[in-house]
Amino acid sequence: MTELSFTEEQRDCLQELINVAMGLASDKLARFLNTFVHLQVPAIGLVNAADIPAQFRGQYQGLNSSMISLGFFGDGGLRGETILLYQLDNASKIAALLGYDDDANSEAEMLTDISSILTTTFLNGLAEQLENSFSYAAPRIIFSRDNDFISKLEQTAFHWQLALQVDIRYQLTDYSFDCNMILLIPGEAVLKLKTILDHVLAEF
């Protein structure tokens, strides 16, 4: 745990890079989606992956939720997984946002489409800040329209014990639609990330 935790400098640096990446992403998304996109300055922290279900409990308990995962690989051993959580009361809002007719597209396709747009846009920006580039796996629906998803989440074997959690909230004003993104980076990759951050810091 100790060798994985960030120094204060590394942490500030990562926070700053993520902020910049989010700025880039919200600008691109706003132009593509024709709406103002507000991305809250995220909280970042190293967490025990086993604690994540408990965190979601308060926030999403009893709601119809969907969870979509998207994996990514970068150079220098950097890799991870993003998880997007949606409350599905606003499925029709997502359809309108993407310019889809409700009928022609399945809800599953709509969710994977919006997820890959939201995550890859942000991650591309982050990769740019880290002087890296990411390749992505196709998005995967872990579950959809499930109000007992917390228990499923507890059974979901994450590939890692320790994770870098970055909570990002996408709020789109015209559509009052929001979702949460969690960026999970496994322990080995956190070590790589620290090296990369040190490299970035050395350049200043």
Partner: peptide, 15 residues
């Protein structure tokens, strides 16, 4: 979306 966001998009046989 691929052109304007310069990020990849996917389509799966499942959908």
């Amino acid at each position: 979306s691929v052109l304007s966001l310069q990020s990849p998009a996917f389509s799966s046989w499942e959908q």
